[in-house]
């Protein structure tokens, strides 16, 4: 019965705390992962924009070799996995690096979606992350600017809003490492919180409830075997009135027994006297 009492007190607390801590950690991890990924995309977007700006003067001069050199030089970076510039028709014009076939396929899907989409939607950059291979890719349109449409050597009409597309795939190794580190730390922290919460609740319950009840149970067992109130082990005062009332009952029983004995003794003497007579 007592084991059940302990189980009934601790099991719900354990389930509720464990479940909610795990749930909270999973959701928190999901939030942080989304925030870090968004931050990584923002950085990648800024990098992509920087590359597009750096090729601008070469594009204005229609210096194809310079553009190819810039793209190739950027492609020598270890964390760059793909770099490509596409024309208005979506065909590859310049390619610096293409390490992963899957990245190339994703980039082409992005370009196809740019070409298929409405004019307003082309302004939105496309991005994707592949956690399995540790890559993220970002594609954005290259817009026509007054300098392009009024250039002497390389003429684009005013109404051509998009002059081409740019795709860059970079390694998400650092992001994945950070996420793994965060996950491991969260697991360790959760386990510590769980042990402290469940252990703390168990210790408090044991100290303030289970042990006093255990002592009272032991006293009740002793009293039922005839031990007098004065001989019962001293109890603490954690159970308050219950403990006092129990000892009072045992004391009353002891007094009643004494009174009964006192009544029985004269009767016995009377009986003995009558027998002798």
């Amino acid at each position: 019965m007592f084991d059940n009492l302990i189980a009934r007190a601790i099991v719900p607390v354990t389930i509720a705390v464990t479940g909610f801590v795990i749930f909270g950690c999973l959701l928190l991890y999901s939030f942080i992962k989304a925030d870090l990924t968004a931050s990584a995309f923002l950085t990648a977007n800024n990098c992509a924009d920087t590359v597009v700006k750096s090729t601008k003067s070469a594009m204005l001069e229609d210096n194809q070799q310079a553009i190819q050199n810039i793209v190739e030089n950027i492609g020598t970076r270890a964390d760059v996995k793909l770099i490509k510039i596409y024309g208005q028709d979506g065909k590859t014009r310049y390619s610096g690096r293409n390490d992963f076939e899957s990245l190339s396929t994703t980039a082409e899907a992005h370009i196809a979606s740019f070409l298929d989409s409405e004019l307003g939607q082309t302004e939105v950059q496309r991005h994707e992350i592949d956690h399995d291979n540790g890559n993220l890719i970002i594609s954005l349109p290259i817009f026509n600017e007054p300098q392009c449409s009024t250039a002497d050597c390389h003429f684009h009409a005013d109404e051509e809003e998009i002059l081409g597309f740019f795709s860059i795939g970079i390694s998400s190794h650092h992001l994945d490492e950070t996420l793994t580190l965060l996950r491991n730390r969260m697991i360790i922290f959760s386990v510590m919180v769980l042990f402290l919460t469940v252990g703390g609740v168990t210790a408090l319950l044991r100290m303030n409830l289970f042990l006093p009840i255990l002592r009272l149970t032991y006293n009740a067992e002793q009293a039922s075997q005839g031990v007098a109130e004065a001989d019962l082990p001293k109890s603490d005062h954690k159970l308050g009135k219950l403990n006092r009332d129990f000892r009072l009952i045992v004391k009353q029983r002891d007094q009643a027994l004494l009174a009964l004995k006192a009544l029985e003794t004269p009767n016995r003497n009377v009986d003995n006297g009558s027998d002798q007579a």
Binding site: R8, P12, I15, G19, L26, L27, S30
Partner: peptide
């Protein structure tokens, strides 16, 4: 895909607790 385990954990907790209450 991102939030599956969160719902699964909270679902297991709620229904596990409820199941324990029912049994008890």
């Amino acid at each position: 895909a991102e939030n599956f385990w969160a719902i699964f954990a909270v679902g297991l907790t709620i229904l596990g607790l409820h199941s324990y209450h029912v049994w008890n």
